[in-house]
Amino acid sequence: MNDIRDILKQRILIIDGAMGTMIQQYKLSEADYRGERFKDWPSDVKGNNDLLSITQPQIITEIHKQYLAAGADIIETNTFSSTTIAQADYDMQSLAYELNVAAAQCAKEAVKQSGKQAWVAGAMGPLNKTLSLSPDVNNPGFRAVTFDQVVAAYYEQVKGLSDGGVDILLVETIFDTLNAKAAIYAIKQFYHDHPQLQPAEIMISGTITDASGRTLSGQTLEAFYTSVMHAKPLSIGLNCALGAKEMRSHIEELSQMASCYVSAYPNAGLPNAMGEYDETPDETAHFLEEWAERRFVNIVGGCCGTTPDHIKHIADSVKRLQPRVLPVVEKELV
């Protein structure tokens, strides 16, 4: 396989679209989520999409194949919530490692069946507990989790994804940078503990939550960038929360400051009153084509509400356009 950094110098790469949106189309029941193995599990598991990598691997593999056929160069594993902390909602903490291995194997199998060159990115979601914010409005100093606990959760996820064979580790949908720094620390510690392994490339993708241009934990885009660049990632970017129209100015700002490649995978617009996404593939592709024409991006794709049709339109719209050129950096931060 060609080195992804070499390919990024030549063209804009395509990352896939929403996993959850595609899973919803299967209209799975509680029994479908449980499968035979978990038919007697004591708590409800419907909605635990990550579990499907074990109980319905053929569905997850098929979704990956649809995105690959649509033009995706990078596919994300079905592991957004595959940590001990997030899986506690379903009393499935003990499955965290297995979920990551299984999801990585689904993605790798899809690439194999597709016959095309593509990279598997191990998705590391933001967790359902934050290190920067208190869940108790009456006790702002309280934290529901410690830094060491977050590191341990991410470390186990990295181990599972690595054992499953991912090419990239994608720390994504970051709304609390301290959580992301714990994830980065866990990645670095894992490879320090396993020097025989070739470290996976790191992609980092944050979330600007509203027109303020800040993350949920209050950082400006520049502050967020400065906080995570010590990881020396392959790319930094934005995803989720906003549609492409609302994300544009932030991507332009990021493209002007980033010393690495820039990624962007927005939602299919903003959700309507029913929580659904109405932006058509043509509309999403039009926005991302304009970003590409202005040399803002190196990796583009979709988040919530996007489908293989969105990804196909995006891929077709940017394939003739040149990628953003990395700036010459005189002195890197140490």
Rank of each mutant, 00 (worst) to 15 (best):
Cys106Asn: 14
Pro266Leu: 08
Met22Ile: 04
Glu30Gly: 10
Ile7Trp: 00
Asn49Met: 08
Ser212Glu: 08
Met1Cys: 05
Trp291Ala: 00
Asp278Glu: 15
Ile299Trp: 04
Asn78Met: 10
Leu127Met: 14
Val171Thr: 10
Arg5Asp: 02
Asn139Ile: 00
Thr146Asn: 04
Leu242Met: 14
Ser94Ala: 15
Ile7Gly: 00
Glu62Lys: 13
Phe38Gln: 06
Leu133His: 06
Gly237Trp: 00
Ile311His: 06
Ala285Val: 09
Lys108Ser: 09
Ile311Phe: 05
Ala241Asp: 12
Val111Ile: 15
Met229Tyr: 06
Ser81Lys: 13
Arg214Asp: 06
Thr177Gly: 00
Lys9Ser: 09
Gly302Ile: 11
Leu238Lys: 01
Ala285Asp: 11
Asp44Phe: 06
Phe80Asp: 03
Val171Met: 10
Ala211Phe: 04
Ile23Gly: 13
Lys188Pro: 03
Ile184Trp: 03
Thr130Glu: 05
Pro126Thr: 06
Phe224Ala: 03
Phe80Ile: 05
His194Leu: 07
Ala121Met: 11
Ile311Gly: 08
Glu276Asn: 14
Pro195Leu: 09
Ile174Thr: 06
Leu321Phe: 03
Ala118Lys: 03
Pro271Lys: 04
Val151His: 07
Glu290Tyr: 02
Gly275Pro: 10
Ile204Cys: 05
Ile60Met: 09
Glu289Lys: 15
Ala200Leu: 07
Lys319Asp: 12
Arg143Cys: 11
Ile7Leu: 14
Leu68Tyr: 02
Ala86Asp: 14
Asp210Tyr: 02
Ile174Val: 13
Pro135Gln: 01
Thr307Arg: 06
Leu170Tyr: 10
Asp3Thr: 03
Asp210Trp: 03
Ala292Ser: 15
